[in-house]
Nucleic acid binder design. Structure first.
Lengths: 128, 128
DNA sequence: GTCGTTGCAAAGCGTTTGCAGCCTA
DNA sequence: TAGGCTGCAAACGCTTTGCAACGAC
């Protein structure tokens, strides 16, 4: 089921990507990570960003944020349960604390619930 | 902003696609629509499915259902406000009636709310 | 007969992968 | 030095588009 998992090395590229994600207060996409990472390592390629994203996902350091109709974003793992807000104007995604909870009553007969995802849409404070 | 919008024609392909969507009790993807459509019009191509999906979307006959991390699905327009359930096992998506509502309190200061999307995950009745 | 539509193949776009050289440990 | 990592370019999967033939009205 699982590969022997090689010994990871701390390259400047990997460090730059991990720090970019940890320092951000909102989830970031591969292209944004490339731009930020290139401030430290100008030669960095997009393929490297993707490979490190996948490595960090597998080691559990970051989480994939998937919103309807958009390519995935990534944020630090270990944030508490939260949801996301997508600004209709600037397109940025923000973390939202809290959760309405109590969604089980919505389920049809015989269905079981293991998780949920909520995305809010509107204008962020900068764009409102 | 908007093209003069040509006079649409009722081809067998378009009819088959529209009927497949209207007859389904759950949202369908392009590949599924191709398979169903080919029962009526075996020569149908995937490009035709996509072109008709987009035409039906613009004329407001169908709605795009976008779930996190999956390609879009399509369902009849005019269904009342609802959400979606994604089965972890079979991968199918089902419509869910009802809505928790009252999500405004979750917003940070200065943010405005125009809409929301909720996706539930778990096992459907067949897979539970 | 017009002109919207179709099938096919090529092009786009975001993501993944093969490969040879590079660099961390 | 070994072998994981990187940059580059080719490959992929899904969707769109150019083009010539087709067919609805």
């Amino acid at each position: 089921m699982s590969e022997p998992a090689p010994q990871p090395r701390n390259t400047r590229q990997r460090t730059a990507i991990r720090e970019a994600i940890d320092a951000s207060d909102r989830p970031l996409g591969p292209q944004e990570l490339l731009e930020i990472g290139r401030r430290d390592v100008p030669s960095m390629s997009l393929a490297t960003v993707y490979r490190n994203i996948n490595a960090l996902l597998e080691e559990g350091a970051i989480t994939k944020v998937e919103l309807p109709g958009q390519p995935p974003l990534y944020e630090s793992a270990g944030l508490k349960h939260h949801h996301h807000f997508h600004c209709d104007k600037c397109g940025r995604v923000f973390d939202i604390e809290g959760c309405p909870g109590n969604l089980k009553p919505l389920l049809p007969e015989g269905f079981t619930l293991t998780g949920h995802e909520i995305t809010l849409y509107g204008r962020c404070a900068d764009c409102a």
